[in-house]
Each structure stands twice: as structure tokens, then as C-alpha cells.
């Protein structure tokens, strides 16, 4: 699971959960791999992100690097900044661990990079 995906994931499908966001990451294995940098994609996806959630997730995984805690202005024209965002969004991956619902504490396991968001019959 990439942090881009984590930024969009919620547990609101659980019965009784209102926003279910953000899911807390408990990481056992984290992998960093190289992904081609696409400046346009990163700057297009940025307005959709919850910056604070991204920053905290990256910090929690120990990969926040020089990423500023508050989003800078005019990032479209700042490839150096966008490269750092690219790195945390697409290159840092949680391989094994858990995602925890902030409202119920329900844990969703992540195994070999795939979060298991399946619900039990009594949870829908």
C-alpha cells in the first residue's frame, strides 16, 4: 500500500462509522522502491490530498525526510518539492502491517502490500 492510497482510504463502510478517516497505520515492513517521477501527476493529485494526513503517515513510517509540515504555495513550479511529495506518495510502501479504524479500533490487516478491507457479515 502506497501512501497515496492510504490518503484516500476510509473505514466508513463499517456499520455505524461516520468518517472513518484517517486510518492509523501500524507498519511491520516498509519497502522503498523507485518509481518514475511524473511532475504533472503529482501536482494534479496534490489538491485532492489531505496534506496533514500524508505528512503524519510519512513521519510515522520514518520517511518524512525534508517534507514541510505545511503545504507550500505555488508548488506547481517547484519540481524539487514535487519530487519529495512523489517519493512519499508513490515510492514508500507498507508491505505488512495493519490499518486501524479511528472510530471503532477495527483492524484491517495488510499482507504482502494488500490491505484487506473485507467486512464481516455483522459489520455491513
Amino acid at each position: 500500500m502506497k501512501l497515496l492510497t492510504h490518503n484516500m482510504l476510509s473505514s466508513k463502510c463499517l456499520k455505524g462509522v461516520v468518517t472513518g478517516y484517517p486510518l492509523t497505520i501500524i507498519a511491520k515492513d516498509v519497502k522503498v522502491s523507485e518509481v518514475d517521477f511524473n511532475q504533472e501527476f503529482v501536482s494534479r493529485v496534490l489538491p485532492k490530498l489531505d496534506w496533514n494526513v500524508l505528512w503524519k503517515a510519512a513521519e510515522r513510517l520514518g520517511h518524512v525526510g525534508e517534507l514541510p509540515q505545511t503545504l507550500i504555495e505555488n508548488y506547481e513550479n517547484d519540481p524539487e518539492f514535487l519530487k519529495k511529495v512523489h517519493h512519499v506518495l508513490l515510492e514508500v510502501e507498507v508491505i505488512n502491517g495493519e490499518l486501524v479504524c479511528p472510530e471503532t479500533g477495527r483492524k484491517f490487516p495488510i499482507t504482502s502490500g494488500i490491505p484487506n478491507m473485507l467486512l464481516n457479515d455483522d459489520e455491513v
Binding site: 490518503n7 482510504l9 463502510c13 494488500i114 478491507m117 467486512l119
Partner: peptide, 16 residues
């Protein structure tokens, strides 16, 4: 290259 999620579409999609 896509990120993968194990889920049942009929339970609703787990996204913001």
C-alpha cells in the same frame, strides 16, 4: 503498477 485492495464492491467502496 496499480495499488491493490482486497474488498467486496457490494459492501461499498472504502474511499474518501
Amino acid at each position: 503498477e496499480g495499488d491493490l485492495i482486497l474488498g467486496d464492491l457490494g459492501d461499498g467502496l472504502p474511499f474518501r
